[in-house]
Design a protein around this nucleic acid. Structure first.
Lengths: 343, 343
DNA sequence: CTGTTAGCGCGTTCAA
DNA sequence: TTGAACGCGCTAACAG
């Protein structure tokens, strides 16, 4: 307990045996140690609360039992991604699953693939979780890293590598919400993706919106998508501008976070939701149930993404073949009160 | 880039020099290496994207540059604490500060102090951040661990050890909000702490509530505090029961999370806020600005807690004396629309 | 002046 | 039941 952690050498000295004998006791090689010695050594091991020095283990086994969790931030985005409640749900689930699987979690935020490679090798990581990594960088990482990688919400540009990904029925999400809006009489909708730079989930969701239009023999063109900036003040300006123009009857957001931000702000500016403009979200997290009116939104299970990702990664680490390489978790539409029926 | 990380030995072999020469180049001992050799070796180092094996470093230096971030969960609380937006704000700030200070972040959730001790020693951690640790466990940790520890939102039972803590003007928070309620004519308030087990911030806040009453020559007795259970369904039942009894005119919550939960739920049950009952929050996070009416709440800067904690820890690691051992970050009352003026 | 050999830190296994 | 050797980075001491 006190002072520094006991080493095998110290324990062996206290017990008056060799380090090898201590190791034999530790690993239950009873055939190699007399019962008497075994008990004496065991007692000291417990007394000293012995745990191996992970540095020595790394050197010896060439691995560390560390799972690196890498959250990609975009270079332009200065605030930390972790503050998003969506990532904290995933993170919480991962921490738990990593710990319960007997691994350790190293958390790192970056937008530099070289750093990821260096980190994983310096720490002899057993595996990596990569969240929101752009497709071109996934390719670099997969060809530079030789330990298992599981991606979360990533989209890949090539098929040279086998990518393991935990994703979502994004396209179906866009489709479902748009189909609903159409059924409520909306024809002029605006899609507001979160992410101004990378193609990814947002692109898929917008494709789903188009699908719903096409199904009705209608066309939703590319002008109907307006990416949101990272700066809150700029976003608010955009919300107001759009609502005042009255060219759209419905705003389709790609996250509950921005949807509730817009809803709240527009109300403060005297614009009624859904009477003046309809709003939909995406995620079905706590935000969608706090605002008044409650947000009609697309449900997804964020924690499950984290849990599944770790379970898949641990399988890969153990060399178990994973049948489903690209998981797409189901979504469903959660209808509440933020959409107006148009006559 | 490809395959495993290059070792000094491999680089020395490629350059046709000894490992020592490579080390001399790495550490800029120019006097010991000819300019020609230096450049040749330097080129290979960069080409191979060399980084030291952290396991070897741990063995050599007896530290790891790992900062352990330990989130205490209560044994009864099964859900992960990380999903709380409050902890994600702190966490995000810490991740950033740790990375920018050149350390690595290992994240771990537990309620077992022995595990904390073992973890910190096995990994030769340079320092620890401990969040929401009960006082009796702080004592054990401080006497068993010989690396710097900085606590966040902890309360200590003894003065044998020097505890470094980043906390909040909790008592002042309870005082300010209660003073405001009194000024609005409320005399029957109920304080609803988050944490049914440990004394801590909630106790301080409640003491602040009593201070405000005492200042007016009034008494707030212990019945005016009702801890909330972790089970959501049970909480909702409590909210409704209290509101229906009409014995209290104001509910003083210890977090925006529960305050907005209650506000939303009571509204769904046909109870008007603040006309039928007033509600106040604590934290001033996004929740308080999403609900309608906006929550009157006590402001605190969660991210700053994380940043300051890491800055203090890094100082301690570097052996720098820290003048302010127990930081209490300021709070202020944020008045919005969830409190009714009583005549 | 330039470069090398030797040895430490720790846990594990093979050969003795 | 034990000594020796290995994995890797770093530095003190030493050789060319």
């Amino acid at each position: 307990m006190l002072g520094r952690m006991a080493t095998i050498k110290e324990i062996s000295r206290k017990a008056g045996v060799s380090p090898t004998t201590v190791a034999n006791v530790l690993y239950g090689r009873t055939a190699k140690v007399s019962a008497e010695t075994r008990e004496k050594v065991q007692a000291i091991i417990e007394e000293e609360n012995y745990t191996p020095n992970m540095g020595a283990m790394m050197l010896l086994k060439n691995n560390s039992r560390i799972i690196g969790v890498i959250m990609f931030t975009e270079p332009r985005k200065n605030e930390t991604v972790l503050e998003d409640p969506f990532s904290s749900a995933i993170l919480g689930a991962m921490e738990r699953e990593i710990r319960e699987s007997g691994y350790y979690m190293m958390l790192y935020t970056t937008s530099d693939e070289a750093e990821v490679v260096r980190l994983s090798k310096a720490w002899k990581m057993d595996g990596l979780i990569l969240v929101w990594v752009p497709g071109n960088i996934c390719r670099i990482i997969n060809s530079s890293i030789d330990v298992p990688c599981v991606y979360i919400d990533c989209f890949f540009e090539d098929d040279e590598h086998t990518y393991h990904n935990i994703g979502l029925e994004d396209r179906m999400g866009g489709y479902e919400v748009t189909k609903y809006l159409l059924s409520m009489g909306h024809r002029n909708m605006l899609f507001l993706p979160c992410n101004p730079i990378f193609p990814g989930g947002d692109t898929e969701r917008f494709a789903g919106c188009k699908d719903a239009f096409a199904e009705q023999g209608l066309v939703l063109d590319d002008d109907a998508s307006r990416p949101l900036p990272y700066d809150r003040a700029k976003r608010l300006k955009i919300y107001l501008e759009i609502a005042r123009k009255k060219t759209h009857t419905a705003l389709v957001f790609s996250s509950d976070f921005y949807a509730s931000e817009a809803l709240t702000y527009l109300q403060e500016q005297g614009i009624r939701v859904p009477e003046d403009i309809s709003i939909t979200g995406f995620d079905d997290n706590i935000f969608s149930r706090l605002v008044q009116p409650r947000l009609t939104t697309v449900h997804q299970d964020s924690s499950k993404k984290g849990t599944l990702a770790i379970q898949m990664l641990v399988k890969l680490i153990h060399g178990v073949q994973v049948e489903e390489v690209r998981v797409k978790l189901p979504i469903w539409l959660e209808i509440r009160n933020s959409v107006q029926k148009l006559s």
